[in-house]
Nucleic acid binder design. Sequence first.
DNA 1: GCGTGTCTTTGAATCGTTTCAGTGACACGT
DNA 2: ACGTGTCACTGAAACGATTCAAAGACACGC
Lengths: 343, 343
Amino acid sequence: MDRRPVSIKDVADRAGVAIGTVSNVLNHPARVSAATRERVQGAIDELNFVRNDAARQLRAGQSRTIGLIVLDVGNPFFSSLARAAEDCASENGSTVVLGDSGQDVVREARYIDVFEQQRVQGMLISPVGDVGPRVEALRKRGMPVVLVDRVDPQRRCSSVSVDDIAGGYMAVRHLLEAGRRRIVFVGTKADYRQVADRLTGARQAVEEYDDAVLEVVEADAMTVLAGRDAGEEIARRRGSGLPDGIFCANDLLAIGVMQAVLLIRGLRIPEDLALIGYDDIDFSASTVVPLTTVRKPTELMGRTAVELLLEEIEAPASRRRQVIFDPELVERGSTTTSVRAGV
Amino acid sequence: MDRRPVSIKDVADRAGVAIGTVSNVLNHPARVSAATRERVQGAIDELNFVRNDAARQLRAGQSRTIGLIVLDVGNPFFSSLARAAEDCASENGSTVVLGDSGQDVVREARYIDVFEQQRVQGMLISPVGDVGPRVEALRKRGMPVVLVDRVDPQRRCSSVSVDDIAGGYMAVRHLLEAGRRRIVFVGTKADYRQVADRLTGARQAVEEYDDAVLEVVEADAMTVLAGRDAGEEIARRRGSGLPDGIFCANDLLAIGVMQAVLLIRGLRIPEDLALIGYDDIDFSASTVVPLTTVRKPTELMGRTAVELLLEEIEAPASRRRQVIFDPELVERGSTTTSVRAGV
DNA sequence: GCGTGTCTTTGAATCGTTTCAGTGACACGT
DNA sequence: ACGTGTCACTGAAACGATTCAAAGACACGC
């Protein structure tokens, strides 16, 4: 019904005080006497006053908002990272607004522009492709930026990321400790750095055991279907050609491999063949044999990203930090018969 | 390096014009001569001027931003709806900012407050629990609101939603047309309206066939595990107790049923047993036998929601509209041997 | 009665933009 | 030469909040 929104002046008139007093009630209640405070609060309630953030921000010169740009909100990694970031920000009196670039440089650029015009306190960006020029331009204008899931090669801004070499090492080490020696790594041609890192880690683990061998089976894509193709080929093997442990570069591949191995040849998992994936997607706990996998510490990454950003906002001259987390092993039934807890 | 951000005044000084002229270059380029326009543009580029959205908004009284609050960004339904909404909004010169309530009333309230303080043009809300009071308060202050995936019982605001009764009908009708007559519906006790609606639709379809029967099997939850339990019970049946078609209230249940049916008894899908789910989650195309399912027209819903909102923004007095979409059937291998296209 | 200090309240300046009435400049027709 | 119109540009008001110096009220001690 109200045609134009209620301003602080309307509240002041209603309560019979100066606008400065209303502002004090909102921002420094202690400075105002109890009687006045109540009267002003009453006027605010009666009029349904909602503070105009644009005006506040204009005057204050800074907002209480953090921009977060992710590659894909549909990806559980990013959605739970976003949630953790929101929690951490709200504990610090800020709000996170989310932009989904959908791996599209144009959309990414649009969100960066919008956030900059909105004068967000800072941005958390999981960048598409080349980070360099765009982020540098932002930094030149004094906008704090923290990279997520990617490191700035030039160390110009702080970042949080995961050590995939360590992850690959953990996965294969786990297979080896379970007594497996004929290990297969299933992954795409190492076009992604992440796949390459996981393989590197796998190699390091195998080298620690004299009697262990690692074979690489190439998949066409990082999908269930590609995993099933790879799995079928492997499942058909006889004798010593058949591995006793498989490490897949992600969970989708592992699920495909599991489907093939169980159905084509009726092998038992983990007795005949131990299987481990990577990422811990939602579905991995619900496969026929629950999938052991390696998980990024998502919540921790989200919180840390916000903390690094707030640090930089408060002390713009402080040194940039590259925080690299180790992933964690999630043991389920596909590698061990006795699992601690099935989720 | 720059300590305080560049303002329109700095640009004006640099270009040797009045600030009004700079504003015209930005907002009404046609009013400015080509020579001046270039000079101003040059100054903008040299100084890296970025427009202050707070000041613009304060003066203009309205932003170019739409707030979208979803129950769970991790849910593919919402993430693709969000993407469609963003696309539609950007075609109309607006930007969508996303808030994730995580099914939490407190977080939902916080986002509503933040968005209202930011004076967004309007909000799209997929509400947690009771819509009434909160939305009514918003509307009283003149804030346009469109509900997503839920109808306002009092028809106070526009909404986009899906007809789950029609969806349930389509699913079972599809089974019946494939010659199945002993149908089982797997779902939770009808606490969710959505589950109840799907069952209602299923009943309607069965009633059209004299020789068809519908049995309801209750699951403990809408999860893969609960589906597996239900599936095991069903798979152990002999003779006429064994259905030839199963409709699950969502895809997770269907996946669990599939796991049980294939492994426990080694039944063939779809020959012995046709199976259909609901939602078309990502994984449904990658199950051992690709899952036939029912999908909400997500993109259409996102675009329509934005259109309804823009309509209301432009004509606040216009009539509210409840748009209800029919879902669509996605045929895959779990119901028919010859599938058009396997995704 | 007067200076001092504390507590509350006031009112004006300010942030960076948009908008709009007004000022020149210049061309054109009469 | 003069009115009329068009076009490009100017300068100040306005948006709604925060902030801060200053004023007012009051009590207290001397």
